[in-house]
Each structure stands twice: as C-alpha cells, then as structure tokens.
C-alpha cells in the first residue's frame, strides 16, 4: 500500500519521505469522492477523533470558494493555523493528480510553520468518480461515496472505488429512505476491491466512525515503523 519511500538527494521534491532537515515528514492521507458524499464531514470526524493523540493539519481543495476550509474552522475541529485552502482553478482533480505543486507547497508550509506534524489530511474538491490522488502527493487515500448517490456506484467501479486504500460508504442512516441496498453495496465493493477495506459509516449514528479513525492509526503506525 505504501510507496517506496527513498531519499534521493536534493532533487527529490515530492514523494520524498524526509524533510530537508532529515526528519521524517508527516504521513499524508488524501480524501476524495463525489460532491456531497461527506468528505469534509469525514475530515471533521477524523480531526475530532485524533486531535488529542496526534499533531495534525488539513489541506482543503475547494472548487471555487474557501467553504470547506471555513466549515472546518467554524466547527473548530482544529486551530485555524492548522487548516489551509488550496485554489484549484476550476479543476479539482488537476490539483490532486496532474499538477500537485500547489498542494505540495501547502503541506510543506504547514510543517514549516506549525512544527513537526504526524498527519496531514488532504481533502479533494468534490469531483467525480475518476478523481484519484497522485502518489507524489499522498501516501494513502480514502474514497468517500454515499448511499444516496446510488447503490450501484460500487458495482460500476472506477479508479476511486476500485483502487483507494480505504473505501468509505457514508450516510448509511439514509439507506432506508433512498432505497439503497447496503448488503448489495458491500458485495459489489468486495468484488471490485478484493482485499482492500471498506467501512460503512454514519456520522449521525457514529457507526463506522471509529473504524475509519482506526484505519488511519494503522497507516500511521506502518509509516513511523
């Protein structure tokens, strides 16, 4: 699941696991997924679950506003200096996949300005089912879909659903109201993803929230090992 993190001298400028001073940099986890699936709420949930045990920060990639960053600020999940917004020029997938330079500046500036960090969550602007993070930007990625977006999304697959290191199926509390078949979604996801994990989450009932945080902890343990 991890990249091959090697230190290749001063020209290694993106995926390098070390900072210029030689210390190991923060683990970076990307959160992607369609508009409205609950990425920002999942980030907020992770911050609340992990902020007392880890030094963490968030980079948001809004499509045309600072709204996601402002939601996190308003919810006060982290102090303001730990939340940065990157502007994406109407192309959120470009900023996380094709041209990651602005996001890399953002994560580096966070580490420079607030000191050593354990974890940086990079939230993508809501885009489509094909948007995935570059391996030059993040070490692992979570793809967030929701039951209201259609219970056929896992069956249809696509790079996010198929290859993300963790698939979160969000808003499970809504399933009865939108006629989504959770068992079918789980079976389809297994078929698409083989051994890769899937968590069914409801931020309202708290179901699955601990599992997502637990998965992040496990990534971090592997990163620092």
């Amino acid at each position: 699941m991890h990249l091959d993190h090697t230190h290749d001298g001063p020209t290694a400028v993106s995926a390098d696991a070390h900072r210029p001073d030689g210390r190991r940099r923060a683990l970076r986890i990307g959160l992607g997924g369609p508009v409205g699936s609950g990425k920002t709420a999942t980030v907020a949930g992770l911050c609340r679950a992990l902020r007392d045990e880890l030094s963490l920060a968030v980079v948001t990639n809004d499509i045309y506003t600072r709204e996601d960053a402002e939601f996190l600020l308003r919810e006060a999940v982290l102090p303001p200096e730990r939340i940065t917004a990157v502007e994406t020029g109407a192309c959120p997938h470009t900023a996380i996949r094709d041209d990651i330079s602005a996001n890399l500046e953002a994560v580096e500036d966070l580490e420079d300005e607030i000191g050593p960090l354990d974890l940086i969550l990079v939230e993508s602007g809501g885009d489509n089912l094909t948007a995935t993070f570059s391996k030059g930007l993040v070490d692992a990625q979570i793809f967030v879909i929701d039951v209201a977006g259609g219970d056929d999304i896992p069956r249809k697959g696509g790079p996010g659903v198929t290859t993300a290191d963790l698939l979160v199926v969000n808003k499970t509390d809504l399933a009865p109201y939108v006629g989504s078949d959770l068992a079918r979604m789980a079976a389809d996801a297994r078929a698409q993803r083989a051994e890769l994990p899937v968590v069914f989450q409801s931020l309202r009932t708290r179901a699955g929230v601990g599992e997502v945080a637990g998965w992040v902890r496990a990534q971090l343990a592997a990163w620092t090992a």
Binding site: V86, T88, A95, S101
Partner: peptide, 11 residues
C-alpha cells in the same frame, strides 16, 4: 500547458 508548475489555477 500540462507541465505541472501550478499555472492551471491562475487566469
């Protein structure tokens, strides 16, 4: 234009 140097976010 696809050279990854950040220009895509500027008008």
């Amino acid at each position: 234009g696809r050279f990854p140097a950040g220009g895509h976010a500027h008008s």
